[in-house]
Design a protein around this nucleic acid. Structure first.
Length: 479
RNA sequence: GUCCCCUUCGUCUAGUGGCCUAGGACAUCGCCCUCUCACGGCGACAACAGGGAUUCGAAUUCCCUAGGGGACGCCA
């Protein structure tokens, strides 16, 4: 399959060698969302795959906003898409194309098709079409437009009805798609109806606009969801009508929810910003998405750099996958563990802007211990409150007080305040008292943090610093 | 209803006719490490949807069945 791809690139180069050097040798992919909602996880994966393919082959990754549905398209959604992609680290080349701005051009081309006899005006009303579909279903045949205006003289058209433009799809024969992912798929042309290219209000349909834009943008490879597979057969008819070269298609399976059904809002069809808010790092989301339907042997942890190096369409899977939050959390905890402390601090601070510099510093000093224990940024943030919350002490019994007194003395005269030194010091205290380390660690933990579960006590003492640590000890001893 | 696609441990997957008594990861369970909680280490459990065919040999090729999914808009 990889070879196939390479051969095709060569072929394309041969054909387009007279064209600008820009497009020479280059794969051009695109991501073309409609701005009617957030960038959901499935779309993000589609974007990721197209982006990876372009970056792997040193090609171009373009962004096109399919905003031809004027009612449902919103600026908020456009922003959500841009921001979501940016957050994931998916960068696009060239200015994004807004499809609606090209509508006039799309319609002009459709009219040319009518002139060439490749398309025609249809005067059916939506009601008539509905009746047609009902009838077809009742007869057990494919519910499609019956082509009644295909050869009919437009002069017989009702004057009060504004027509649509429909494509004249071949009535017999078949259309074969050599899909990068699905392999060879063949559909009888009789299954494909004369789709509408231009609506009665004079606006182009998705089907037309996609084809024209992909062609004009020089798109060579389209990776998209499985749900577009049947659309592809229709779009191929449009390419053929124009006489244009058809791009390579790869239809990746859809992502399903934990129950195996279509992904819904309830279980994960959220915007990528929702994953950010749930405390996921973008590289963890990317890694998880990447492994959903793509693999590289037994590799699980794959950096973006490795992904770019390894990504080809060879290893794309054909079956639908479910989103596994636990696996995503595991991946996330890995990336948190390996993230820079300063970066983690900055992420935590995004929602805690009023924290003092001193406390921030404490968090930073304690970050190594904190990040070891967090599966999400939210957990990390919660754990970090150990270093920011106001100190509260509780009563301790006399036996533990004795232990803490010795600790206090030992720490007070400790020459250097490092985790190693503290470690040694506390172990010495335990030895002298003939106690297991746990016996001294637990009361100390309580006194320092008033919690049962914390990072290691050396880390905590180090992060709090000598002054604060001793202060807490003395408060507890005098309580 | 019509057309199309998919089917390996609970989940994500490796596997392209012999290397498979099917490998890895997450989850689960056990042990080790250990100052709590985690991390980490070691181990266990666990799958080729079913049936035919081709072949010396099939998870891998072909056919059928079953199950799942998708598409059938003047939405994208």
């Amino acid at each position: 399959m990889n070879n196939l791809l390479k051969v095709n690139i060569k072929t394309m180069t041969k054909h387009s060698s007279y064209e600008s050097t820009l497009s020479k040798n280059k794969i051009v992919t695109r991501f073309a969302p409609s701005p009617t909602g957030f960038l959901h996880i499935g779309g993000a994966r589609t974007a990721l795959f197209n982006w990876l393919l372009a970056r792997h082959y040193n090609g171009k990754f373009l962004l096109r906003i399919e905003d031809t549905d004027r009612v449902r398209s919103t600026q908020e959604a456009v922003d959500a898409i841009f921001n979501g992609l940016k957050w994931l680290g998916i960068t696009w080349d060239e200015e994004p194309v807004f499809q609606f701005s090209r509508a006039k051009h799309h319609v002009e081309l459709a009219k040319k098709l009518v002139e060439n006899g490749k398309a025609y005006y249809c005067y059916c009303t939506p009601e008539e079409l509905e009746a047609m579909r009902e009838k077809a279903k009742a007869q057990g045949i494919s519910p499609k437009y019956n082509g009644m205006w295909r050869e009919r003289d437009p002069k017989t058209a009702p004057a009060d009805i504004k027509p649509v433009i429909r494509l004249k799809v071949p009535l017999d024969g078949e259309t074969t798609l050599h899909d990068i992912v699905q392999g060879t798929v063949t559909v009888a042309n009789s299954q494909i109806d004369d789709m509408i290219l231009v609506r009665s209000d004079g606006t182009p349909t998705f089907m037309l606009s996609v084809v024209v834009d992909d062609h004009d943008m020089g798109v060579t490879h389209v990776i998209r969801g499985d749900d577009h597979l049947t659309n592809t057969f229709r779009q191929i008819q449009i390419y053929n009508a124009f006489g244009w070269e058809i791009p390579k298609y790869g239809h990746i399976p859809l992502i399903h929810g934990p129950d195996g059904a279509k992904l819904s809002k309830r279980h994960g069809a959220l915007g990528v910003e929702a994953y950010r808010d749930m405390g996921f790092l973008p590289e963890a989301v990317c890694n998880c998405l990447l492994r959903l339907g793509w693999s590289h042997g037994n590799d699980e942890i794959i950096s973006i750099e490795q992904a770019i190096e390894w990504f080809t369409t060879d290893n794309l899977g054909k079956s639908a996958a479910r989103l596994d939050f636990q696996k995503m959390e595991k991946l996330n905890s890995y990336y948190i563990k390996n993230a820079e402390n300063e970066r983690l601090l900055n992420i935590i601070m995004e929602t805690n802007k009023d924290i003092s510099e001193e406390k921030k510093h404490r968090i930073l000093l304690g970050m190594n211990g904190l990040k070891q224990r967090a599966k999400t940024i939210i957990e990390l943030r919660n754990m970090a409150t150990i270093y920011t919350e106001d100190y509260v002490t509780t009563k301790i019994d006399e036996m533990n007080k004795e232990i803490l007194k010795d600790i206090d003395i030992a720490l007070r005269i400790l020459p250097e305040w490092t985790e190693e030194a503290i470690d040694k010091c506390l172990h010495t205290v335990a030895e002298k008292k003939g106690l297991s380390f746990g016996k001294i660690a637990q009361p100390l933990r309580t006194v320092l943090s008033n919690r049962k579960i914390t990072p290691g006590i050396f880390e905590m003492l180090f992060a709090f610093g000598r002054d604060e640590s001793l202060k807490r000890l003395s408060i507890a001893l005098n309580f």
